[in-house]
Structure formats: structure tokens, C-alpha cells
Amino acid sequence: MRRPPAKKQRYHHGDLRAALVDTAVDLIAERGVAGFSLAEASRRLGVAVSAPYRHFADRDELLAAVGVRACQVLVAAVDTERAGADGPVAELAAISRAYVRFAVAHRPLFDAAFGAKLDRTRYPELDAATRPLKEAFLAAALALSDGDRDRAEALAVAVGVTAHGHATMALLGGFGPGGGTAVDRADAAARALVAGRTALGTYPEGMTRGDHGGR
């Protein structure tokens, strides 16, 4: 269901950058990643169309800032979900659940982080923001791989990509309303991948250097 158009916002002196990120999230919620502009963000905030350029070179740079915020929210959700996990199998399942829950609860952030198709070589802050997520997947996978990093990376990527697939299908309505089924299925899929991990083998050099979720 589409959110109603956001009301014109006000911001406090010195907080324009944060206000632009907030407004970008609202516009993405209403129109999708491709449907917002710096000009519209300016209009919503009641500032000159030139004002955002004091903080962002272009709309992609603002999208990158939204992506960084998204990753921070996701990592916090992952940390909370896996805090009570009993062992690495449960930890991988917990990370997968958190990933899907995040996508369902924060679709504009999910779309900005994983659907904006930004050139990440231009925005190293995005890679830095996703690094704790990659490390969470990999640490649990290493504990299940007797220290074999290649096999651990294969498992981490498989679980991460599967979680991303469940998240995407949930947003498309493939698991029905609410996303609860997608969360449960992502948990089950992670556990199934762990059980069959010896069949995964390893990936060619370089294939595991990207995101473990939202590749």
C-alpha cells in the first residue's frame, strides 16, 4: 500500500543533510528509487533547489547516503536477532531472518541499499557500511567450515543470496501478506544450506568478493 504524500517538512539550521536523507526515504517510499529527485526533496523541505548541492554532488550521492543509513539499520537488526543464537547454525538462520524482516519493515531503505544500482567504486562508504553484515555471515560460516575460508565463503554467499531472494520475493508478494512466511522460509533455507554445505564446493577466485546479501 502506497504511503500518502509526505507533508512539507521543516529542518533545524545545520541539519539539512540529515533532513535530505529523511526526505529521500519518504520519496522512495512513495515513488520508488527512480522516482525522486533533489529538486523534489528541496521542494518538500522548503529550501532553494541549489541548497542540497552543499551536501551532495548529485542524487546518486544522496542515494548512497540513504544506503549507508539502511545498512546501519540492517546491521543493528542482525546484531539483535543473532544475540541469542545458540551456535553458528542458529546464527546463520538468525541473520537470514533479520535480513528478510528488515526488507519487509523498511522497504525504502532496502531498495536504496540493494536496488539503486549505484557504482560502488564511487561510494566506498557503502562497502564500509555493508562490511559488518558480510563479516556476520562469514564468521558463522567459518565456524562450520573447520577454518577453510574458501568453503566458508561459499556457504556465506549461498546463505546471504538465499536470504536476499526470500526478501525480494516477500516484497513482490510471493509469500503472502505480512512477510512472516518469508522469514520462516529463509530460516529453513539457511539451515538446509548448512546441512548440505559439502555440496556447495568453492567459487572461482573473485566471486566471493562482493556482497553476501544483495549482490
Results as ranks from 00 to 15, higher is better:
R197E: 11
A158V: 14
A190F: 02
G160T: 09
R191C: 04
A190P: 01
A195S: 14
R151S: 10
A154C: 12
A195Q: 14
A170T: 03
A190W: 02
A154H: 10
G165I: 05
L193K: 12
L193P: 13
H164G: 09
A188I: 08
L193C: 13
G180I: 01
A156G: 06
G196I: 07
M169E: 12
H164F: 05
A188M: 09
A158P: 14
H166A: 04
G176Q: 00
A152E: 14
A190L: 03
G196A: 14
L193V: 11
H166Q: 04
G173F: 07
A192C: 12
G178E: 05
H164E: 05
A189L: 04
G196D: 11
G179R: 01
L155Y: 08
A189G: 09
L155P: 08
A170I: 02
T168V: 10
A189E: 06
F175A: 03
R191A: 05
P177F: 05
G178S: 10
R191N: 02
R197Y: 11
A158S: 15
A199I: 08
T168D: 12
M169S: 08
A158L: 13
L172T: 06
A188R: 15
L155G: 09
V159M: 06
R197Q: 15
V194S: 10
G160W: 08
T168S: 07
A182Y: 02
A163C: 00
A182I: 02
V194H: 07
F175P: 02
V161F: 12
T162M: 09
L193M: 12
L172A: 15
A190Y: 02
R197G: 10
A182Q: 02
A170P: 06
A163S: 02
P177Y: 06
A199Y: 12
V159K: 10
H166T: 01
A152P: 13
G176V: 00
D150E: 15
L193H: 10
G160C: 09
T181R: 04
T198W: 04
R197I: 12
F175E: 03
A158Y: 13
M169D: 13
E153G: 04
G176I: 00
A199T: 11
G178D: 08
H164W: 05
A189N: 10
T162G: 06
